[in-house]
């Protein structure tokens, strides 16, 4: 960071100190006086959707926010791979300098011990099953699409570190990009049933909190995930509706995006062959 040496660095430091003081003092002022606002209403209504309140917040009340945030991860993967060399474009009609690309990493896996060689692959496979378990439990217990994607891609990374180029978890290029496309596209299209039925994009027709859809749709999308909630206030029958499906799409998208980043950074990118 050449730019931050000398006078500029001092100015930046002073600005940082002023910002920090301002921020800390305002946080101190807000302590104990944070206004609950709309979140009280959200909390009061939460039991109507998923048993896990967090899942309701992220995928139902603010479900469309999460779609665009998921797209941030997708774009992150896309741009990172672009920088490595996937999809670099040049003008046909004029000569430019040749694009910057990065070479694949060099692996040295000869030094792998016997224990790692035998236990590495079961560990990676069990990590994948763990990721799948996490995504299926999204609406009842902690977990969800983001976490699942991160766990699965860490299994991929683990296998890549242990086995190098002969990665036993062999996500191909088209598989990774395809799964990302299915993930984000699927999430986006899960809004369509609600849009067609009520006019509101991504209305959760499975949970149908505001009774806007015919009961047949409510049954199709809601019943597969219906659970009985035995609480001290009584027994409730609640279904998260499309929330579990959204989580699976989310997981696919994260696997696609982070997997693409890992793939491109580890093995480089060449446009030839699969």
């Amino acid at each position: 960071m050449e730019e931050l040496k000398g006078k500029r660095g001092i100015i930046a430091l002073i600005a940082l100190i002023i910002i920090t003081i301002g921020l800390l003092s305002s946080l101190e002022k807000l302590t104990g006086r944070v206004n609950p606002g709309i979140s009280e209403v959200y909390n009061a209504l939460a039991y109507l959707v998923a048993p896990n309140n967090l899942a309701t917040w992220v995928y139902d009340w603010r479900g469309f926010d999460t779609l665009i945030e998921t797209a941030v991860i997708y774009v992150g993967g896309l741009v990172s791979a672009l920088v490595i060399g996937r999809g670099v474009v040049q003008m046909k009609k004029c000569k430019q300098e040749s694009p910057v690309t990065s070479k694949p990493l060099e692996f040295r896996v000869e030094s792998l011990t016997v224990i790692l060689e035998y236990l590495g692959i079961p560990a990676a496979i069990l990590l994948i099953s763990y990721g799948i378990m996490i995504v299926t439990g999204s609406s009842t217990s902690g977990g969800g699409g983001f976490q699942c994607g991160v766990i699965m891609t860490s299994a991929y990374l683990l296998a890549a570190i242990l086995y190098g180029k002969n990665n036993p978890i062999k996500f191909g290029k088209r598989f990774i990009i395809g799964i990302g496309a299915i993930g984000l596209g699927g999430y986006a299209l899960l809004g369509l049933p609600g849009y067609l039925a009520t006019g509101y994009w991504q209305y959760n027709i499975g949970a149908d909190v505001w009774s806007l859809v015919p009961s047949i749709l409510h049954t199709i999308f809601g019943d597969p995930f219906r659970l009985s909630l035995i609480l001290k206030e009584g027994v409730f029958y609640s279904t998260p509706g499309i929330v579990p499906l959204i989580n699976i799409a989310e997981a696919f998208n994260v696997i696609g995006a982070i997997g693409l980043i890992y793939f491109a950074f580890l093995y480089g990118w060449s446009d030839e062959g699969e």
Binding site: R62, D65, I68, V72, V79, L82, Q96
Partner: peptide, 23 residues
């Protein structure tokens, strides 16, 4: 909240478009 997400994704995309020529 959504404004923030849109600004964030916007700046990431700008990075991609600038880097697309690979020079």
């Amino acid at each position: 909240y959504h404004l923030w997400i849109a600004v964030e994704i916007g700046s990431l995309i700008v990075v991609g478009i600038a880097a697309a020529s690979g020079t």
